[in-house]
Every structure is written in C-alpha cells, then in structure tokens.
Amino acid sequence: MAEAESSTGFNIHPMDQFQIKPLFGAGEIHWYTPTNVTLWMLIAVVVATVLLVIGTRGRAVIPSRSQSVAEMMYGFVYKMVEDVTGKEGLKYFPYIFTLFIFILLANFLGLIPGSFTTTSHIAVTAVLAMGVFLGVTILGFVKNGTKFLGLFWVSSAPLALRPILAVIELISYFVRPVSHSIRLAGNVMAGHAVIKVFAGFAGALGVFSIFPIISITAVYGLEVLVAAIQAYVFTILTCVYLNDALHPSH
C-alpha cells in the first residue's frame, strides 16, 4: 500500500492528455504533420457535416430528430446574432455559426474519454480570438472610418475624464482577444486536468477509489455544462465585439 501511495505521484500526469503527437510514427512535428489535432478537428468537421448536412437532408416541414437539433442550433445562434448586433450583423452569421459549431463540437468531443480536446490549446483559441479581434477591428474601420475611434472616446462622460477613460477603453480593447482566448482554453483545460487528477487518485486508493470516481462523475457533469457554456460565451462575446464594430457610438 505504501508503495502504491508513493507511486501515485508518478502516476498522475494531468497534462499528458494535452500532448500533441504525430498520427503516423514519431518524430518532429512540422506545420503540415497530421497529428491528433488534425484527427480531432477532422472528427469535428465530420460530426458537424453529419448533424447539419446529412441530418437535414430530408428538408422536412415536420423535422426529424437530427433536423430538429440542427434547426435549434441555427435558431439559437441566429437569434443571438440578431439580438446583439441587429439586422446588420446577420451578414456575418455564417462565420459566427461556424465558430459556435466548431467550439461546441470540439468541447463535447473532448469529453469522450481518451479523446483529444483541440479547444484546450491556447494556440487554437488564440487564433479563433485573434480572428475575431482582427476581423472586427478591420470591419469597424471599414464601416465607420475614423468614427470607429469614438468607441474609445466616451462622449457621455465629463470632458476631463475622457482622456483617462480613453486609455482604459483602449487597454480593455486590446485585452479582449487575450481574455477571449484564455477563458475558453483555460476552462476546458482546467476541467480535463481536474478529471485526470481524480482519475490518478482513483488508481491509487484501492477500495476508497469510490470517492474520486464520484468526484469524476460530478466534475464530468460540470464539464458537460462548461463545454456548452464556453461555446455560448465565446459566440456571444463575438457578437458583442461585432456590435461594437457596427455601432461604435456609446
């Protein structure tokens, strides 16, 4: 028992699940190497296609189950974009929907035991967030010209406060992609790591492993929630940023 306890420290590798490995053989990972990232992103695309393309192929007025799910997702994101950004934002709905579906599926696929969670990597979420940040910033300038800078000049505040507020607004604007990406990756990674830590305990505690197993179950339930909520949060923040770009006046 003492030996098992001591080896517990070695057995728990909560971060191993996040390792990126080449799919075929070993060796250096080049930018084009097919890795487990490739595999699980491909699975996400396949699942999205099955759900949203094959699931809706009946085009039934009274939907089948899979068509109903696809319609609900469509309606959910469509309404979100419309509510937050107004009618003008609907032009960007396909991209926002792509983001939502990708993050949602990546999060949920990552909850399959033994799978790889692409959204747990800051490189992935940073690209997603930077894409939104750059796209929204460029769009803001293209749509509004220099008026877009009015976003930082709070005209409703007293004149003396405005420069200070402008600095704060500017900083918060540039922190957006950081918080946007780290929020998603951090949530997903932390949950998976916690589950893995409990799993390590379960392996070492013998009969008492029932407690870590209960904990794993509870945390897993929480993670299911987090998977959906983080996809929602990422999407709605994208909508909010897009709204700032379309309507920069405070």
């Binding site: 990126i20 990972i29 080049h30 930018w31 084009y32 190497t33 890795t35 990232v37 490739t38 992103m41 491909l42 996400a44 695309v45 999205a48 296609t49 949203l52 393309v53 396909p94 991209y95 929907f97 792509t98 579906i101 990708f102 692409t118 990597h121 490189a123 992935v124 690209v127 997603l128 894409g131």
Partner: peptide
C-alpha cells in the same frame, strides 16, 4: 504552427460546408 495550420484548414472547410 501545426495547430494553427490545421485549425485554419478546419475552419475554412467547416465554413464552406456550413
């Protein structure tokens, strides 16, 4: 680079399918 490359490929493919 590997992750970013495959993510971009995935996003483009997914965007076109959707």
């Amino acid at each position: 680079p590997n992750q970013i490359f495959w993510l971009l490929v995935t996003l483009v493919v997914l965007y076109f399918i959707l």
